[in-house]
Simulated scan of single mutants.
Amino acid sequence: MFVLVVALYFLLACGVAGLLLFPAAREIVYLALAKRRQQIGAQVQNWRDRRSETTRSLSQNLQASRLSSWQFIKRHQWILLAGMAVVLIPPLTAWMLSGKTMLGSYDDSGQVVNQQIAALLEGEQLVPPPPLPPEVFTTQEVAQVRPMLDTASRNWQALDADFTQRLLMTFKIMKEKHGYDMVIIEGYRSPERQNALAQMGGSVTNAKAFQSYHQYGLAADSAFMRSGKLVITEKDPWAMRGYQLYGEVAESVGLTWGGRWKMMDLGHVEFRKPGVMKR
């Protein structure tokens, strides 16, 4: 490595000495540099000429396109105006009519719900209803729709206090405003029961232990009472209408309704408290 450095230094020194001592060598180097500079200048000028030509071509094409478009519009102006009318008039008409319909059918019944929610937040304490006889939940019709309901917990005391008040308020509104008597068919659910239900397949539940708010006392499944009988089936139009109203009322008091899920659970509501479950 040292020898290579010395050799390079020697060659460099010889070159510098040659330029200093021999005018002919300096002339050769000068001519070579001048020729190279001319070549670079020619390349730069050639690039500038091509760019200028491209710019002129694009400008001419753009002007021609504008002129052609304007001529097309002038030749077909009435057809274009008619087409715009066909496209714009129907949606504008529908928008104007829908706006009038919304204003004309405004329903202030939501104010009643807001007052009841305000009362709930101000501290109105609702009392859970007395438990129903066990045989209400063990009929053949109920067992076909909801398996293992006879062993489900319907103890209001096992539920979160805040969730309990919101659910009771929902039941109250459903009764007073819509005429539906509602009962809780399952509240708190143990981890063991949750796993047992999950093993029955996706038609029952996909949630395993501690994947459901039931294990935290923050969820409940409810149904309707009609003529002293429990109505759970979704095939009953009266019950389906009730579930829709139930979802609206539950959401208005801050609960999450299972009817909006991909796998709908119409009778299910839950109260998603921050920090309880990560979703």
Rank of each mutant, 00 (worst) to 15 (best):
L120D: 00
Y180K: 05
V231F: 09
H214Y: 12
L21Y: 13
V142F: 04
K208F: 15
P237N: 10
W238C: 10
V253C: 09
D162K: 01
A34N: 12
M102G: 02
A34L: 13
P134Y: 00
E186Y: 08
S98R: 05
V145W: 08
A220V: 15
L218T: 03
V249Y: 14
P274H: 07
K172A: 12
T256K: 12
D236R: 06
P274M: 15
G275S: 11
F224Y: 06
A64V: 06
I79L: 13
P237D: 10
A25L: 15
E122R: 06
D108L: 13
A119Y: 07
L62N: 04
M174Y: 06
E176T: 14
M96L: 12
Y246K: 05
E270K: 03
A64D: 04
V142E: 02
R226G: 03
G247V: 07
L167H: 00
Y213Q: 00
G258I: 01
F171E: 00
F224M: 11
P237W: 10
W156S: 00
R166S: 00
G267T: 02
G201W: 08
P134F: 01
K273F: 03
M182S: 01
T151K: 13
M84D: 03
L81P: 00
R226M: 08
P131M: 09
P133G: 11
M240N: 11
M263T: 14
T205I: 06
Q77G: 01
T93R: 01
Q71E: 08
G179D: 04
V6C: 09
W47A: 05
L21S: 11
R26K: 13
D49V: 15
Q215L: 07
A152W: 08
V44S: 04
G242S: 12
S69L: 14
P129K: 07
S222Q: 03
A32I: 07
Q211E: 14
M263K: 05
R260E: 08
G217I: 02
I185Y: 03
P129A: 14
F10D: 14
A42G: 04
W238V: 14
W78K: 02
L4P: 01
Q215S: 05
A64S: 04
G123A: 10
M1S: 12
P130V: 06
A223E: 11
D236E: 15
T93A: 12
A7L: 07
A239T: 01
G179R: 15
P147C: 08
A239K: 05
V142S: 05
M148H: 15
R189H: 06
S105N: 14
L33I: 06
R241F: 09
N155T: 07
S252K: 07
W238P: 09
L19M: 11
R193H: 12
F10K: 15
P191T: 00
P90Y: 00
W257F: 02
Q63R: 12
L230F: 05
P147N: 05
K235H: 15
F137R: 04
A207K: 12
G18W: 06
R56D: 10
A219K: 05
